[in-house]
Design a protein around this nucleic acid. Structure first.
Lengths: 151, 151
DNA sequence: GTAAGTGCAAATGATTTGCACAGCG
DNA sequence: CGCTGTGCAAATCATTTGCACTTAC
């Protein structure tokens, strides 16, 4: 059985993570985080809402938004800007890059050690203090390419 | 030989560019494009609107939006997603990367030949067809750093 | 002349916020 | 118990759209 990504481990110690960041533990927050971590792709707030609603039917959309914003503020989640203008959330907090399909809007992670090691140009240093590097490739994924060729 | 279009050059032959793409030449479009090309930073639709309004006081916001979208569709302009959720436009169509200040939200261009030449990991090829590479560094620019230290 | 561009105002759609009640610590 | 989190509905804010008039070609 192929093992899931490492952020699944975080799932086990979910309340530990919450405590560490001094976040109140609520059923909604736990479910939202669980759903996020279990989704392979990078879900939008709407996707998360839909998934959590099956567990907590009374949950509201804005609790989802508030929780996601909270998680992001505490560095428990990342945020990805997608092509369709909905924000996507990323439970994978280790450094990685993205492959974005402009047809189906899916976002896949990939790693690129050569880029990790590449030293940035000198003139960047005088710009200011760099904190994070974002890279994405945009194109069309295999599935969408196939779909375009044969109807 | 295919001519390289720096945006300054484009500015000179503005109506030529429009004709080439079979876009009707209107006063609004000309002004919008001129304003874009003259702005050092990457302006938002609002910035463009404000600047063009000094030249054509009767121009409407949606003409600006429509023109920017048109230009983008024809590859005359690029689009940058900014940290404050307003779209920024980029008259520089040659390949380059961005430095984004998370405090003042400015976006500066830079080039990185080593990255241009770096070959992407093999497993990306099986994902699909890559069309474009986006990279940005986020951090705090020199000016904002100084402002934070001593007010 | 005619199809496309413009200005206006009203619509959209993702995200946010004020408020009263509910639940965590 | 106090204070934060939640749910609801209404508010925001950038961007888009329908329509009647104007303009480029």
């Amino acid at each position: 059985m192929p093992k899931k990504k490492s952020h699944k481990e975080g799932l086990r110690d979910l309340s530990a993570i919450f405590k560490e960041h001094r976040l109140k533990i609520t059923r909604q927050r736990l479910e939202i985080f669980k759903v996020l971590a279990s989704m392979e792709d990078h879900p939008s707030a709407e996707d998360v809402y839909a998934a959590v609603k099956t567990k907590i039917p009374t949950i509201s959309f804005d609790t989802v938004y508030r929780s996601l914003a909270l998680f992001e503020r505490h560095g428990v989640l990342g945020r990805v800007q997608s092509l369709d203008d909905r924000t996507r959330y990323d439970p994978n907090t280790s450094p990685h890059y993205h492959l974005v399909c402009k047809t189906c809007k899916t976002i896949r992670d990939f790693s690129w050690p050569d880029l990790d090691e590449l030293t940035a140009p000198d003139d960047i240093k005088e710009w200011g203090a760099i904190e994070k590097k974002y890279l994405e490739f945009r194109g069309i994924c295999r599935e969408c390419l196939a779909r375009e060729k044969g109807p």
